[in-house]
Design a protein around this nucleic acid. Structure first.
Lengths: 220, 220
DNA sequence: TCAAAAGTGTTCTACCTACACCCATGT
DNA sequence: ACATGGGTGTAGGTAGAACACTTTTGA
């Protein structure tokens, strides 16, 4: 980094983009928001929303702008975390050598329904369409990271409505992990970590005993 | 990413650099290799070795080149892993807006001694000098990551000589974790994961019972 | 024979897993 | 009264933590 300004500018610089993989749970499935490309390269294939980093833009801001502009999603309602920076494949983008900083995000299905600018098409991560660039690898990588972190972090709440039942929360974990969980063990574990607030309200729905509603305690 | 070439080039692009934090164990301490800056900004302060990413250079290659050129270290002898990409602080580098992809690496102290081009100064991560840019934060972040991953990964072997005793290995873990470990539990755990090869040789040294030498099984 | 580090097993605890029945509701 | 999902406790197994003594060597 000890360079004069001359040195900094004397060589050709790669481009830097941010790509975002936005997850939600829809139809009992873990889904990712993708955009159909209308232009080459990879015209007709699906891609993660992305955007080149502007000179005065923080990189997380670039990610949020990509969601807004490419996906029509209100970027403030999205939990985002940096995933990895992909810069190995020099052929990744055929127009220009591009380094891609990838973020992954979570949004609850409710929030999507209410945002009518939403331009994403949602695909189950188990049934992805043909993808542009190396986006298939990126999605696989993100799903793995999501699974590793789901117990260490409370981000699964980003997928929930404001009020939810324990069974609904368990379903989200099961969808992320792609595995069945034991009801009693799940409740024990999730209540132990003390991030749930019992709203002392019941959800009356269906022909069965009503379920308690919870929200999660916001960190201060 | 769906942009015409015009769009790609019409805005000013940030620079992309790779910074590397190289760790070793010296004098019973976890140390990082730093370089004293001779030029502004931050002249006289210490910095991680770094380098701007060239157009035709894979980013891990940029990291290795930085070690070679800035530190005089043979880059093939170094374990490297991507840590995080820092791009929040627009004032990070005062000359140009720079995004920094940070790698961390490990090298055994032996290897450093034999490389006489070595230009690093080594500092205990607990007694760092005044650092340039936001490199203090980066080092703290890397140390935390190292601690989290030391049991999940076998990278601690990068810090060892070719042949080593269990006590020497334990010392390395203790230095990384900054904590004392129980000898019996450590041996049980490390032998259980089955990555050590008993060389059936003894290290005769000092006035005490000789220690068995091990190497680690290279993954194929 | 002494000092110094190597080497070795068992007990206790905490956490995770597996598992089955009663409860409250609407029809 | 029955079908449906909500709600609850316990026993067994496993992995990690704590802990002390004997062995081998060179001086």
């Amino acid at each position: 980094m000890a360079k004069t300004e001359d040195e900094i500018f004397k060589f050709k610089r790669p481009g830097v983009a941010v790509d975002v993989i936005l997850f939600t749970i829809k139809d009992g499935d873990l889904q990712a928001g993708l955009i159909k490309r209308e232009e080459p390269p990879y015209s007709g294939k699906y891609a993660l929303p992305g955007r080149f980093v502007r000179y005065e833009e923080q990189i997380e801001e670039t990610a949020r702008q990509a969601l807004k502009i490419k996906g029509g999603i209100d970027p403030h309602s999205v939990f985002l975390e940096q995933l990895y920076t992909f810069g190995q494949n020099l052929e990744r983008d055929t127009r220009i050598r591009t380094i891609s900083i990838v973020y992954y995000g979570l949004i609850s299905a409710n929030q999507i329904y209410f945002q009518k600018g939403n331009k994403f098409q949602w695909f189950s991560v188990y049934k992805l369409p043909q993808l542009a660039f190396d986006h298939k690898n990126i999605i696989d990588y993100a799903v793995n990271r999501l699974r590793k972190k789901v117990w260490e972090s409370d981000f699964a709440f980003q997928l929930m409505a404001e009020e939810f039942t324990l069974t609904e929360l368990q379903k989200s974990y099961e969808v992320i992990l792609n595995d069945k969980l034991d009801k009693r063990n799940f409740r024990k574990k999730i209540l132990e970590i003390n991030i749930l607030k019992d709203l002392h309200k019941k959800k009356m729905e269906g022909v069965h005993r009503p379920a308690s509603l919870y929200s999660f305690k916001k960190a201060k």
